[in-house]
Amino acid sequence: MSDFYREHILDHYAHPRNWGRLKNPDIVADSDDPSCGDQVHLELALDEGGRVSQVAFEGEGCMVSMASASIFTEYLRGKSLEDLERLTEEEVLALLDAPIPPSRRRCALAPLVALRAGLQAYRR
């Protein structure tokens, strides 16, 4: 039964990395999934070269969305805005390193939805 809920997923859920808020974020973003109440709040700070220097998130939701957000924040540090723009759904799912059935994709992609909303707002 626990094949999907592998240890690293459980661990990220129980001990989310980069939890909290930033002092001076450049990019602030929210994802709201009305179907299950998953919420991811993502904050990024950029360095002078336009790369992600600091990341933080808070949220509420299922294990998949929270673990995915936690793993995602670890991945984001050091990436350029161009890297973030190019990020695909499949790449985000691959970060989880666990089989994601179609019914859970939305949960796993919640942090990407937040990031994309944040990038859009940042460009404006």
Partner: peptide, 13 residues
């Protein structure tokens, strides 16, 4: 346990 996680685990059974 979030209901989505629960339904997912029940499905596996």
């Amino acid at each position: 346990i979030h209901p989505h996680d629960l339904a997912h685990l029940l499905d596996l059974e």
